[in-house]
């Protein structure tokens, strides 16, 4: 089981408001998965270079040119709430 503090902290970082039942469930399920993942520690990876990308690509650039902008109606079409061509959100603090 993951401790309640860890579950709360991770849920806060992930911006998830979990119910008590969810917290319990995830605490045990995550612990199971993490325990399963513990087997990775058996491997000696001291001198192994991590693979962040499988492709040997490098230096992919674009030219500094200005392209099409979205028309504001399309930009805001999906907005749950809007005002004056802006996205509207509840108070920040």
């Amino acid at each position: 089981m993951l401790s309640r503090e860890v579950v709360d902290h991770v849920a806060l970082l992930a911006r998830l408001e979990l119910s008590e039942e969810e917290k319990e469930r995830y605490a045990s399920q995550l612990a199971d998965i993490l325990e399963y993942a513990e087997r990775l520690q058996e491997l000696d990876t001291e001198d192994v270079i991590p693979t962040a990308h499988v492709l040997p690509l490098q230096n992919v650039f674009r030219h500094d040119t200005v392209g099409q902008h979205l028309p504001s109606e399309e930009t805001l079409a999906n907005a749950p709430d809007r005002e004056d061509n802006c996205f509207k959100v509840p108070r920040i603090i």
Partner: peptide
């Protein structure tokens, strides 16, 4: 101000 505003608008 950010502390008193009832809501905020976002410009990207």
């Amino acid at each position: 101000t950010i502390a008193t505003t009832p809501y905020s608008l976002v410009d990207y």
